[in-house]
């Protein structure tokens, strides 16, 4: 565990002439789930467990006192082992999981591209899903209609596929459309959680370029990835999360090498790969 406090870590970010405005502020964030031990919680099972005096719920302390500030225009890479709390942190920033304790301040609109699939209904066509996704994200119909062509062009699925149910899509096509929707929502903050791994090399390159474009427009990006070279290439700073706490934060190369030492792995092709 590093001795750096959040404010000291903050000083390590690359110096800028005029400090950019604040984008995200997280103060002493704790997220605790009360996870049910039942796969399918039913009345009968609950009664049976109560009869035996067993506890039905278990508390999972997924985040334990995370604090940091991120300025606009930063690309923040987030690394950490499986189950470290990265996705919980991203969901908390997106407002999907409310804090159990602490405070999150988010300046602007958040667009998410999260790991466990996108909010699409596979029975609907690509076009319908784009509309629904946009409306759920809080855009109005006119804004969506204006962006639709851009979204479809960027995803490069072809008009035929845009009007076919998403059941017929390959996983790569699915990911391309999801990415295209997320980056075209004109987010102030874009959260990408290990969502690009299914795209092909060309699309990956295109996604990187688009993310860099967003950064140039002073948007903030959070990028969760196990592809450590992606973090060093794309990010302006990095965070290492372990067991629900922020272990280290600062220059991506430094954080990634510290994380590698922790994992006891070298810079092999396997750890470099992929977003």
């Amino acid at each position: 565990m590093s001795s750096l406090s959040a404010s000291e870590a903050f000083l390590e970010t690359p110096p800028v002439d005029v400090p950019a405005p604040l984008s995200v502020r997280v103060e002493d964030l704790h997220v605790t789930y009360r996870a049910s031990l039942e796969r399918r919680p039913t009345v009968a099972r609950r009664l049976r467990r109560l009869g035996r005096g067993e506890r039905v719920v278990r508390e999972v302390h997924a985040l334990r006192g995370v604090s940091f500030d991120v300025l606009q225009g930063q690309v923040v890479g987030v690394v950490g082992a499986n189950g470290a709390g990265k996705s919980t942190l991203m969901r908390a920033l997106a407002g999907i999981l409310p804090p159990t304790q602490g405070r999150i301040e988010v300046h602007g609109r958040v667009s998410t591209l999260l790991a466990l699939g996108v909010g699409f209904n596979a029975k609907l066509t690509g076009r319908q899903n784009v509309t629904l996704g946009g409306l759920a994200a809080g855009l109005d119909r006119e804004e969506i209609a204006r962006r639709y062509t851009e979204i479809a062009d960027f995803a490069e699925l072809g008009e035929d596929f845009m009007d076919m149910p998403m059941l017929t899509y390959s996983s790569g096509m699915y990911a391309r459309l999801a990415f295209s929707v997320a980056v075209h929502m004109e987010p102030d903050i874009l959260i990408v959680d290990e969502a690009l791994s299914t795209g092909d090399a060309r699309f990956k390159e295109k996604s990187f370029a688009r993310m860099q474009e967003l950064c140039a427009q002073a948007r903030t990006i959070f990028l969760v990835s196990h592809g450590l070279s992606t973090i060093t290439q794309l990010c302006t700073e990095a965070m290492w999360v372990d067991k629900g706490a922020l272990v280290e934060r600062g220059d991506p190369a430094k954080v990634v090498s510290a994380y590698r030492r922790f994992l006891k792995v070298g810079a092999t092709a396997v750890t470099q790969e992929d977003v």
Partner: peptide, 11 residues
């Protein structure tokens, strides 16, 4: 820049 969202524990 649009609005500021603040997430705190539900009261």
């Amino acid at each position: 820049m649009s609005d500021v969202q603040v997430y705190t524990p539900f009261r």
